[in-house]
Nucleic acid binder design. Structure first.
Lengths: 164, 164
DNA sequence: TATGATTAGTTGACATATAAACTAATTAGC
DNA sequence: GCTAATTAGTTTATATGTCAACTAATCATA
């Protein structure tokens, strides 16, 4: 209780492991909030930005499922997300001749235009934010986060609270 | 595109800064999903667990606003959260004699009982998960996350996309 | 003590998120 | 070719999240 970190003391039972975990979590939440606000003049959320970025840089046309996989967004969530983006003219659903079950998702001209506007400021913003770290530290963070992601993903199947 | 990290390539424009930022974000999302699943047998979300932990270890009775501040949860969100928790018998709202505007929030016996059940497995789980890091690395993560949190919070006011 | 500002909490409109049940289309195996 | 299993996407129910507008209570201050 005496340490008073940014992320809150709910979670500092003299336990550095837990503190580190909560640090990542907390920082993730902050980044999400911050990003939402950053994009709010143009898009309803940072998730929409991510979707548009994936679409812009994809090598082939993507289906809804493929989008969802890349972005960790559930398929049932994707439906509504794309509905709203379609309604606000950012993307289009194209029917696929070979497979009548799925759509190819495409940026519209308007969508691409908005992306042009926000992409560069976004990257400048990120660079400024991350300038509190040295290149070595950036590498540390990359390595640590990769390792933690792998650990989380790996134990997904072996968890002891499985509802079996 | 050739690196194939866990967090996705949407975001790897040969830019280590951005990759690090996205790593933290991505890992945060994964942790949140994982935690939600972990608690799902007992609670509807990890947020409810956090609320209960704060309540358990608080030194004095907390109001809704105080809870929200500690957990980065908006006051309008707190209302519904506590409504649901009250309905499922986890917490109670007590009226405060000195100030008829606010409530003190209290764990019920049932709430405390559920917390007993999940607290220890949760901590073991965290310890196992974080065992992929050495103590030094844990310290790195703690320092880096604190610094990043401060950077995010600091620029909140000076952002160049302010809707002024 | 009257007025104005602030604070606590609620509400409503909307976006994001998950899980489960569902339809329609495709694929696999026989 | 027929049936069964799988896959893509939608729908519904519910939880979490933000913002802005609102009520009621308290505080500040002249």
């Amino acid at each position: 209780m005496e340490k008073k970190h940014c992320h809150n003391e709910l979670v500092s039972f003299e336990d550095r492991d837990h503190e580190a975990l909560m640090g990542v979590w907390w920082t993730g939440i902050l980044l999400k909030k911050r990003a939402k606000h950053f994009f709010s003049n143009f898009l309803s959320s940072e998730v929409q930005f991510n979707i548009m970025m994936v679409l812009k840089y994809a090598e082939k046309p993507l289906t809804q499922s493929e989008l969802g996989e890349q972005l960790l967004v559930d398929k049932s969530n994707i439906t509504g997300l794309l509905d709203r983006m379609e309604k606000s003219g950012l993307i289009r659903r194209l029917s696929v001749p070979d497979d009548r079950r799925c759509y190819h998702i495409e940026l519209t001209a308007a969508g691409r235009e908005i992306l042009e506007k926000v992409e560069k400021p976004y990257h400048e913003h990120v660079r400024k934010l991350m300038s509190v770290f040295s290149p070595d530290e950036i590498n540390d963070i990359n390595r640590y986060m990769s390792r933690l992601e792998k650990a989380v993903t790996a134990e997904e199947s072996t968890a002891f609270n499985d509802r079996s």
